[in-house]
């Protein structure tokens, strides 16, 4: 009898083992992700300043937040940045992928050149572009030395234009990665479909517009999801490139949240701005992930 109960125990253990091994990860996720989200949401309804405080103030922080000019700047900036960043990255990525797919000699050389910026930190990217765009030593200086005396390029010092320098550096960093996503999609398309269309007399332009691009729908969707996620999180690049300036001209929600929470001691307002960021991302990610997981079943 003793032997059989030992066997019994072993099989019971084997049944439970997978769940036991998975449990710590799941518990950590529940606590550090979902627990923390709830805590931040809670804080956004309290009068927390430098440290968390548990005095309930209702929607006061949200009212204050939306009345702040700095938050308005941040919202306008993220709208400009995200839309330009997503559109330009997608356009460049798609174009480069289609061009590279034309039996190009040296494709093996070009692909890593397009892709390597993705391996860099946004701080490195920001530093490189910061000095390259600096009128005193960078592009403007170089052009004038080369004899174009009237060349002027001061976007990075100009409150109205500085946001576009962030777009430029961000596009430089990620467009090659988007190219790789489209290239993978292009290589997955069945050539027979293209040949059939050619036999029917379709031009190259028609071929891409009517057949290839519609077939790349999944790659477009993935690119959109990844780029919008990167855009809303963008913190490091702004810090390294412009530091949120000139003045507060390139403030973004991510930099706003950080400065209100940790340097201006307005934790309640900082928390409410984080909640709005999360809601924006969730609105994009949840339907996407839901569809992906349902499809997989």
């Amino acid at each position: 009898m003793a032997a059989s109960s030992a066997v019994d125990f072993r099989t019971r253990l084997q049944d439970w083992l997978p769940k036991l091994v998975l449990a710590p990860s799941f518990a950590v996720t529940l606590l550090f992700v979902y627990g923390f989200i709830l805590f931040t949401i809670f804080l956004s309804f309290t009068g927390s300043k430098m440290l968390p405080r548990f005095t309930w103030v209702g929607f006061e922080n949200y009212e204050k937040l939306w009345a702040l000019p700095a938050w308005h700047t941040a919202i306008v900036n993220i709208a400009i940045f995200a839309s330009l960043y997503i559109v330009i990255c997608t356009a460049i990525g798609l174009m480069l992928a289609i061009f590279l797919d034309q039996k190009i000699r040296g494709e093996g050389m070009l692909r890593p050149i397009y892709l390597y910026p993705m391996a860099l930190s946004f701080i490195v990217t920001g530093t490189a572009w910061k000095w390259f765009l600096d009128p005193g030593i960078g592009l403007q200086h170089v052009m004038r030395q080369w004899g174009w005396e009237s060349f002027t390029f001061t976007w990075i010092k100009d409150s109205d234009m500085a946001i576009y320098t962030i777009v430029l550096a961000a596009v430089w960093q990620t467009s090659g990665f988007v190219m790789a996503m489209f290239l993978a999609g292009l290589r997955g398309i069945d050539n027979e479909i293209l040949k059939a269309a050619q036999i029917d007399g379709a031009s190259n332009w028609q071929l891409y517009r009517r057949i290839v691009i519609p077939l790349l729908r999944p790659a477009f969707l993935s690119a959109f999801v990844i780029l919008s996620h990167l855009a809303i999180k963008s913190y490091d690049l702004v810090v390294a490139l412009t530091g949120g300036g000139p003045g507060r001209a390139t403030e973004m929600p991510a930099t706003f949240m950080y400065s209100y929470t940790f340097t201006r001691n307005q934790m309640g307002i900082g928390a409410s701005s984080a909640v709005i960021m999360l809601m924006t991302i969730a609105a994009i990610m949840v339907p996407y992930l839901y569809a992906e997981l349902k499809e997989k079943k």
Binding site: F26, V33, G35, M277, I281, L289
Partner: peptide, 22 residues
């Protein structure tokens, strides 16, 4: 699938939402 879905979504949160409690 739910366990996985919850873990997957955690990849995409803006980390600002966990900074204070962390």
């Amino acid at each position: 699938t739910w366990v996985f879905g919850l873990m997957l979504f955690s990849c995409f949160i803006p980390f600002q939402i966990v900074l204070i409690p962390m």
